[in-house]
Amino acid sequence: MSAPILELQGLSKRFASRLDLAERIAKALGARVEEYDVQAVSDVSLAVAEGEVVGLVGESGCGKSTLARMVAGILPPSAGTLRWRGRALAELPAEERRRANLAVQMVFQDPMASLNPRLRIGEIIGEAPRFHGIVGAGEAEDYVAGIMRLVGLDPAYSRRYPHQFSGGQRQRVGIARALAVKPDFLVCDESVAALDVSIQAQIINLFMRLREELRLTYLFISHDLGVVEHISDRTVIMYLGRVVEAAPTPELFAAPNHPYARALLAESPRIDTRKRAFAPIKGEIPSPLAPPPGCTFHPRCPHAMERCRREAPALREIAPGRLSACHLNDVT
């Protein structure tokens, strides 16, 4: 395998809310307001090879979007380093850092909210390449038309506004906007979740075609396991801000190792299952405000042992290319 194009080392993000004056007074008077810390992402390390599609799945609120935003340069990490083509992003000189930031682009979940309603499609796509001098003012129109054709939009639409498009077309506009700055890496945060099945298929096909044509690398976030299985080479599973398992997709879906990964795959509805009896989840779903000690999955884990309550398991290699964080792997 080639050297990783992007490497995360011990990346963490903490959201802290501090009380302002009024809230502090209220608290002194007995109101129940608290300062809180959300450890949205803790100590995530991950290397992505050039041309690879990495799928990221996990429960709602486990920190997938936060991780995606850090990778895309929208949120600064609280700790850890991001390396782009082997060099730590924070240490790059400003100009190179800007270029590295541009090389990682994001496609968002909500096709409407991610487009400025007051700009025409042509302006939305053409703004950044012009701003960064990727194209001159003269060629901008042709350039935008080319990108629009690439994502399957008729360039004649470039003078329309976002509200005049369907959901699937809007998502294509969002993809075109990202592609216009010639990125190497696309972060897709639930980019097909808001779309109908038939439109979803079109966008997934588009992603796969672009991968071939532009040699793109993807971080693909979705809660639809069918989609992740379809599109990704490697799948990473997160639980409460941590990576609990990472493995090549076929292997992971064939034989998940971590108990949470197993639960996730078992619960995933598939079109070929009929009238299945669902089983209740055991235990309380923990809050990221007060994560349980030890292994964060232990309140729900059917295999939890005494040790799991005390000691957090480390993410270890359990087979070549497969990582998992569970004490069960030590007990063999």
């Binding site: 340069g73 929208i74 400025n116």
Partner: peptide
């Protein structure tokens, strides 16, 4: 998300405020 998108496209702060935030 469109403001996040503008940040991600490394547009300047002034431009984001003027062209994206203010009109909306």
């Amino acid at each position: 998300e469109y403001i996040e998108a503008a940040t991600c496209l490394a547009l300047s702060h002034g431009r984001i405020v003027r062209r994206h935030l203010l009109p909306n």
